[in-house]
Design a binder for these strands. Structure first.
Length: 263
DNA sequence: ATGTCTAGTGAGACTAGA
Protein backbone atom coordinates (compact mmCIF):
# COMPACT_ATOMS: atom_id res chain seq x y z
CA UNK A 1 0.00 0.00 0.00
CA UNK A 2 1.06 3.59 -0.68
CA UNK A 3 1.03 6.12 2.10
CA UNK A 4 1.83 9.83 2.08
CA UNK A 5 3.78 11.23 5.01
CA UNK A 6 4.01 15.02 5.15
CA UNK A 7 5.82 17.62 7.23
CA UNK A 8 4.53 21.17 7.41
CA UNK A 9 5.48 24.04 9.69
CA UNK A 10 2.13 25.86 9.70
CA UNK A 11 3.14 28.88 11.83
CA UNK A 12 0.04 28.79 14.05
CA UNK A 13 -2.71 26.21 13.50
CA UNK A 14 -5.49 28.64 14.37
CA UNK A 15 -4.25 31.17 11.82
CA UNK A 16 -3.74 28.42 9.21
CA UNK A 17 -6.70 26.11 9.76
CA UNK A 18 -8.48 26.93 6.47
CA UNK A 19 -5.29 26.38 4.46
CA UNK A 20 -4.54 23.11 6.25
CA UNK A 21 -8.05 21.67 5.83
CA UNK A 22 -8.13 22.59 2.15
CA UNK A 23 -4.69 21.07 1.66
CA UNK A 24 -5.81 17.83 3.33
CA UNK A 25 -8.87 17.64 1.06
CA UNK A 26 -6.68 18.11 -2.02
CA UNK A 27 -3.75 15.91 -1.00
CA UNK A 28 -5.14 13.17 1.22
CA UNK A 29 -2.14 12.72 3.51
CA UNK A 30 -2.00 9.56 5.63
CA UNK A 31 0.33 11.05 8.23
CA UNK A 32 0.58 14.83 8.55
CA UNK A 33 3.26 16.16 10.90
CA UNK A 34 2.79 19.77 11.93
CA UNK A 35 5.19 22.15 13.63
CA UNK A 36 4.60 25.51 15.31
CA UNK A 37 0.97 24.85 16.14
CA UNK A 38 1.42 27.65 18.70
CA UNK A 39 -1.39 26.60 21.01
CA UNK A 40 -2.20 24.54 24.04
CA UNK A 41 -3.55 21.05 23.42
CA UNK A 42 -7.03 22.10 24.61
CA UNK A 43 -7.06 24.89 22.01
CA UNK A 44 -6.23 22.60 19.07
CA UNK A 45 -9.25 22.04 16.75
CA UNK A 46 -9.18 18.23 17.04
CA UNK A 47 -12.72 17.71 15.77
CA UNK A 48 -11.95 19.32 12.41
CA UNK A 49 -9.50 16.45 11.83
CA UNK A 50 -11.26 13.58 13.60
CA UNK A 51 -14.37 14.33 11.51
CA UNK A 52 -12.24 13.55 8.43
CA UNK A 53 -11.20 10.22 9.92
CA UNK A 54 -7.88 11.23 11.43
CA UNK A 55 -6.39 10.54 14.85
CA UNK A 56 -4.75 13.52 16.53
CA UNK A 57 -1.59 13.34 18.64
CA UNK A 58 -0.42 16.57 20.23
CA UNK A 59 2.29 18.23 22.22
CA UNK A 60 1.10 21.79 22.68
CA UNK A 61 2.57 24.95 24.15
CA UNK A 62 1.10 28.37 24.75
CA UNK A 63 2.10 30.93 22.09
CA UNK A 64 5.18 29.20 20.72
CA UNK A 65 6.37 25.92 19.28
CA UNK A 66 4.06 22.90 19.63
CA UNK A 67 3.94 19.83 17.37
CA UNK A 68 1.21 17.49 16.14
CA UNK A 69 0.83 14.24 14.25
CA UNK A 70 -2.46 13.89 12.36
CA UNK A 71 -2.78 10.30 11.21
CA UNK A 72 -5.18 7.86 9.62
CA UNK A 73 -3.42 5.19 11.67
CA UNK A 74 -3.79 4.72 15.42
CA UNK A 75 -0.56 5.20 17.34
CA UNK A 76 0.54 2.11 19.26
CA UNK A 77 2.96 4.15 21.34
CA UNK A 78 3.38 7.93 21.58
CA UNK A 79 6.38 9.77 23.00
CA UNK A 80 6.40 13.48 23.75
CA UNK A 81 9.64 15.47 23.86
CA UNK A 82 12.99 13.71 23.61
CA UNK A 83 12.83 10.87 26.14
CA UNK A 84 15.21 11.55 29.00
CA UNK A 85 15.37 15.29 28.29
CA UNK A 86 13.18 16.05 31.27
CA UNK A 87 14.47 19.61 31.69
CA UNK A 88 13.09 20.70 28.30
CA UNK A 89 10.13 23.02 28.81
CA UNK A 90 9.65 23.65 25.08
CA UNK A 91 7.34 21.43 22.98
CA UNK A 92 9.36 20.36 19.96
CA UNK A 93 9.03 16.64 19.37
CA UNK A 94 6.34 13.99 19.20
CA UNK A 95 6.85 10.43 18.03
CA UNK A 96 4.21 7.86 17.10
CA UNK A 97 4.55 4.16 16.37
CA UNK A 98 2.18 2.94 13.69
CA UNK A 99 1.31 -0.51 12.48
CA UNK A 100 0.98 -0.22 8.71
CA UNK A 101 0.35 -3.31 6.61
CA UNK A 102 1.49 -5.44 9.56
CA UNK A 103 4.75 -3.50 9.80
CA UNK A 104 5.78 -1.35 12.71
CA UNK A 105 6.96 2.13 11.64
CA UNK A 106 8.01 5.05 13.82
CA UNK A 107 7.34 8.64 12.82
CA UNK A 108 9.12 11.41 14.71
CA UNK A 109 7.84 14.98 14.17
CA UNK A 110 10.55 17.53 14.94
CA UNK A 111 10.63 21.28 15.43
CA UNK A 112 14.32 21.89 16.00
CA UNK A 113 15.26 25.14 17.79
CA UNK A 114 16.03 28.10 15.53
CA UNK A 115 19.07 29.12 17.58
CA UNK A 116 19.28 32.77 16.63
CA UNK A 117 21.05 34.87 17.51
CA UNK A 118 24.31 32.96 17.76
CA UNK A 119 26.51 33.67 20.81
CA UNK A 120 23.43 33.49 23.03
CA UNK A 121 21.83 30.81 25.16
CA UNK A 122 19.38 30.23 22.28
CA UNK A 123 22.19 28.90 20.11
CA UNK A 124 23.56 26.78 22.96
CA UNK A 125 20.08 25.36 23.46
CA UNK A 126 19.87 24.46 19.76
CA UNK A 127 23.21 22.63 19.76
CA UNK A 128 22.45 20.76 22.99
CA UNK A 129 19.00 19.83 21.66
CA UNK A 130 20.58 18.44 18.49
CA UNK A 131 22.95 16.30 20.56
CA UNK A 132 20.04 14.92 22.59
CA UNK A 133 18.01 14.20 19.47
CA UNK A 134 20.93 12.38 17.87
CA UNK A 135 21.54 10.29 20.98
CA UNK A 136 17.86 9.34 21.18
CA UNK A 137 17.39 8.42 17.50
CA UNK A 138 20.69 6.55 17.46
CA UNK A 139 19.27 4.20 20.09
CA UNK A 140 15.98 3.88 18.22
CA UNK A 141 17.76 2.84 15.01
CA UNK A 142 19.32 -0.11 16.87
CA UNK A 143 15.80 -1.55 17.13
CA UNK A 144 15.85 -2.02 13.34
CA UNK A 145 12.32 -0.68 12.93
CA UNK A 146 11.78 1.62 9.90
CA UNK A 147 12.16 5.12 11.32
CA UNK A 148 11.11 8.45 9.82
CA UNK A 149 12.44 11.68 11.35
CA UNK A 150 10.85 14.68 9.69
CA UNK A 151 10.12 18.28 10.40
CA UNK A 152 11.53 21.78 10.51
CA UNK A 153 15.19 21.19 11.35
CA UNK A 154 16.16 24.87 11.11
CA UNK A 155 19.36 23.79 9.35
CA UNK A 156 20.41 24.69 5.79
CA UNK A 157 22.52 21.60 5.00
CA UNK A 158 24.55 22.93 2.06
CA UNK A 159 25.25 26.07 0.03
CA UNK A 160 22.81 24.80 -2.58
CA UNK A 161 19.97 24.77 -0.05
CA UNK A 162 19.77 28.58 -0.03
CA UNK A 163 19.43 31.04 -2.89
CA UNK A 164 22.27 33.14 -1.47
CA UNK A 165 24.21 31.20 1.14
CA UNK A 166 26.45 34.24 1.76
CA UNK A 167 23.45 35.92 3.43
CA UNK A 168 23.28 33.09 5.97
CA UNK A 169 26.86 32.66 7.15
CA UNK A 170 26.23 34.51 10.43
CA UNK A 171 22.84 32.85 10.97
CA UNK A 172 22.19 29.88 13.26
CA UNK A 173 20.53 28.06 10.33
CA UNK A 174 23.81 27.94 8.39
CA UNK A 175 26.30 28.20 11.23
CA UNK A 176 29.19 25.75 10.87
CA UNK A 177 28.45 24.10 14.21
CA UNK A 178 24.74 23.72 13.31
CA UNK A 179 25.72 22.03 10.05
CA UNK A 180 28.25 19.81 11.82
CA UNK A 181 25.63 18.69 14.34
CA UNK A 182 23.17 18.06 11.49
CA UNK A 183 25.76 15.89 9.74
CA UNK A 184 26.39 14.00 12.97
CA UNK A 185 22.65 13.28 13.08
CA UNK A 186 22.64 12.13 9.44
CA UNK A 187 25.71 10.02 10.05
CA UNK A 188 24.00 7.78 12.62
CA UNK A 189 22.21 6.33 9.59
CA UNK A 190 19.56 8.66 8.21
CA UNK A 191 18.93 9.39 4.54
CA UNK A 192 17.42 12.62 3.22
CA UNK A 193 14.56 11.88 0.78
CA UNK A 194 15.50 15.04 -1.12
CA UNK A 195 18.90 13.53 -1.90
CA UNK A 196 17.64 9.96 -2.41
CA UNK A 197 15.25 11.20 -5.08
CA UNK A 198 17.97 13.34 -6.68
CA UNK A 199 15.94 16.54 -6.63
CA UNK A 200 17.67 19.40 -8.52
CA UNK A 201 19.69 21.91 -6.49
CA UNK A 202 18.20 25.19 -5.26
CA UNK A 203 14.79 23.89 -4.21
CA UNK A 204 13.43 25.49 -1.06
CA UNK A 205 10.84 24.81 1.62
CA UNK A 206 10.70 28.15 3.44
CA UNK A 207 10.57 31.74 2.25
CA UNK A 208 10.64 34.54 4.79
CA UNK A 209 7.68 36.87 5.04
CA UNK A 210 10.05 39.83 4.93
CA UNK A 211 11.84 41.67 2.14
CA UNK A 212 9.88 40.05 -0.65
CA UNK A 213 11.62 36.72 -0.11
CA UNK A 214 8.88 34.76 -1.91
CA UNK A 215 8.67 37.15 -4.86
CA UNK A 216 12.46 36.90 -5.26
CA UNK A 217 12.54 33.14 -4.62
CA UNK A 218 14.94 33.89 -1.79
CA UNK A 219 14.25 30.66 0.06
CA UNK A 220 15.99 28.01 2.11
CA UNK A 221 15.59 24.25 2.44
CA UNK A 222 15.21 23.57 6.15
CA UNK A 223 12.27 21.13 6.24
CA UNK A 224 13.58 17.62 5.85
CA UNK A 225 12.31 14.04 5.68
CA UNK A 226 14.98 11.66 6.92
CA UNK A 227 14.64 7.89 6.64
CA UNK A 228 16.44 5.12 8.43
CA UNK A 229 18.13 2.53 6.27
CA UNK A 230 15.22 0.15 6.84
CA UNK A 231 12.75 2.82 5.71
CA UNK A 232 14.58 3.83 2.51
CA UNK A 233 13.39 0.77 0.63
CA UNK A 234 9.81 2.03 1.02
CA UNK A 235 10.45 5.43 -0.60
CA UNK A 236 8.67 5.80 -3.91
CA UNK A 237 8.08 9.54 -4.27
CA UNK A 238 9.01 12.86 -2.72
CA UNK A 239 7.57 16.29 -3.33
CA UNK A 240 7.84 19.88 -2.12
CA UNK A 241 4.48 21.63 -2.51
CA UNK A 242 5.92 25.02 -3.42
CA UNK A 243 2.56 26.23 -4.73
CA UNK A 244 1.18 26.43 -1.19
CA UNK A 245 3.41 29.47 -0.52
CA UNK A 246 1.59 31.47 -3.23
CA UNK A 247 -1.83 31.10 -1.59
CA UNK A 248 -3.66 33.61 0.58
CA UNK A 249 -2.40 33.90 4.16
CA UNK A 250 0.28 31.23 3.67
CA UNK A 251 2.66 29.81 6.22
CA UNK A 252 6.25 30.78 5.48
CA UNK A 253 6.94 27.03 5.10
CA UNK A 254 5.35 24.65 2.55
CA UNK A 255 4.36 20.99 2.91
CA UNK A 256 6.97 18.38 2.03
CA UNK A 257 5.71 14.85 1.34
CA UNK A 258 7.30 11.43 1.04
CA UNK A 259 5.27 8.64 -0.54
CA UNK A 260 6.08 5.23 0.88
CA UNK A 261 5.12 1.94 -0.69
CA UNK A 262 4.75 -0.58 2.11
CA UNK A 263 4.12 -4.08 0.84
C1' DA B 1 13.56 49.93 5.24
C1' DT B 2 13.45 43.70 9.70
C1' DG B 3 9.51 45.81 2.47
C1' DT B 4 6.11 40.39 7.76
C1' DC B 5 3.40 37.33 10.41
C1' DT B 6 1.50 34.99 14.86
C1' DA B 7 0.17 35.02 19.46
C1' DG B 8 -0.12 37.27 24.01
C1' DT B 9 -0.99 41.10 27.01
C1' DG B 10 -4.09 44.33 28.10
C1' DA B 11 -5.81 48.36 25.63
C1' DG B 12 -0.01 50.65 22.76
C1' DA B 13 2.74 54.61 19.00
C1' DC B 14 2.99 47.27 22.82
C1' DT B 15 6.30 42.65 23.05
C1' DA B 16 8.62 38.08 21.80
C1' DG B 17 9.90 34.80 18.44
C1' DA B 18 10.93 33.56 13.97
Amino acid sequence: MKINVTTWNVNGIRARIENVLEWIDNNNPDVLCLQEIKCLEEDFPNELFTSKGYNVYLLGQKSFNGVAIISKFVSQDTKKNIPGNTSDIQSRMIECTFNINSKSIKVCCIYLPNGNPINTEKFTYKIEWMDKLKNYIEKELLKEIPYIALGDFNVIPTRDDAKNYEEWVDDALFNKLSIRKYRELINIGLYDCHILKQIPLKQYTQWDYQRGAWQNNNGVRIDHILLSSYATKYLSDYQIDKNERSKDKPSDHVPVTATLTID
